[in-house]
């Protein structure tokens, strides 16, 4: 390998330890390229070492406090309450057709009450689902990300 080709490969090299074998062999026998490589590597190491923010900065307490607030908010309404609420709504929808009120409504209005009743039930289910999703946005995002693959 000639020096030009070695330099090209050196400049193309990714931020990973170790060079390809042909480049290593060239560097072993060419003092000029070896010196160039050493200079460049030293400069790049220098950049990485000095660029990051101060070592004494620490935001971990603030982040953990934020997480604690988030978790306590979630704990306020545990999942079994959500499931219980959902089952109660579903049970209500199923059982309403067996109730006296339902029989009275049917007797008084015939089939005319079914549309407004469906609208009311739809609104109840939508409100429940909206409240659940709004308080579990992170779970919803993860779920959608997984579905997107």
């Amino acid at each position: 390998m000639k020096c030009d080709e070695a330099m090209r490969r050196l400049l193309e090299h990714d931020n990973a330890p170790g060079y390809p074998l042909p480049l290593r062999l060239h560097l072993r026998r060419c003092a000029h390229c070896r010196a160039e490589e050493a200079r460049l590597r030293a400069a790049l190491e220098e950049l990485k070492a000095v660029a990051l923010s101060p070592r004494d900065m620490d935001i971990s307490d603030a982040v953990m406090a934020g997480i604690e607030r988030l978790e306590s908010y979630r704990r306020d309404v545990p999942m079994y309450n959500w499931i219980g609420g959902g089952l109660a709504i579903l049970g209500g929808i199923v059982l309403i057709s067996f109730s006296d009120s339902f029989a009275w409504l049917r007797g008084s209005f015939g089939g005319d009450f079914e549309v407004p009743l469906s609208i009311v039930l739809g609104i109840v289910i939508t409100l429940y689902a909206s409240a659940f999703i709004a308080t579990h946005l992170d779970m919803a995002e993860s779920w959608m990300a997984k579905r997107r693959g």
């Binding site: 603030a62 988030l70 992170d138 993860s142």
Partner: peptide
């Protein structure tokens, strides 16, 4: 802080 909070809430993904 915002980035870490976002990362925490999206950790499942």
């Amino acid at each position: 802080q915002e980035v870490f909070m976002k990362a925490y809430t999206a950790l499942g993904s």
